[in-house]
Nucleic acid binder design. Sequence first.
DNA 1: AAACGGCTCAACCGCAGGAAC
DNA 2: AGTTCCTGCGGTTGAGCCGTT
Length: 196
Amino acid sequence: MRKPCCEKKKTNKGAWSKQEDEKLTEFVEKNGEGSWRSLPLAAGLLRCGKSCRLRWVNYLRPNLKRGNFGEDEEDLIIKLHALLGNRWSLIAGRLPGRTDNEVKNYWNTHLRRKLIQMGVDPNNHRIGHTQNIGLSKSSFGSRKANHPCKAANSQGDNDSDDHQKPFTDSASGPESNTSCSGLPDLNLDLTIGLPS
DNA sequence: AAACGGCTCAACCGCAGGAAC
DNA sequence: AGTTCCTGCGGTTGAGCCGTT
């Protein structure tokens, strides 16, 4: 059995206080990101390392854009989701100043509904198939091959995909721009850079 | 003004992958 | 080669906010 990520009884949970934010910010600015597991102790925080990382990444990190998504951002998210499925970190990587959590929330609260209203199935981006709208776990399957395109194409190493590999190939193959989704030409330059 | 219901979003949970040993 | 540890990811939850009745 793997150890729990932190001593449950000794850590705070729930909303972060201002003091905790300050401690975390100060520590990370001084020592850099990483070593999340040992960070809480070193920074004097009664938090799980995971929780610290999340707080930093989603809220405290500098250069975070907060507030409403612009139309261009919405558009990009929809297009990227059609290609990548629920790979929020990859999608967020294309949106400067946005976090995966933010993108995921925005998708689930706004964009999914918007697509449904337009008669587009948010799961596979096909027009007209709006059944199984609920975000069931099965709708995308496991973390890997969690998109209809991937599932359909997942022979060989098609799945080793993402992180460093440019996307241009998957978007420009023989079936290129019409992609699996039946969407019209997305015409995206999806060369993925390393997330900063 | 109070009660209610829906919505939003920060935070948590569990899992998987890779690194380190 | 096998095991353990750490990190990152996606799914889910729940407190709080806001609009409606």
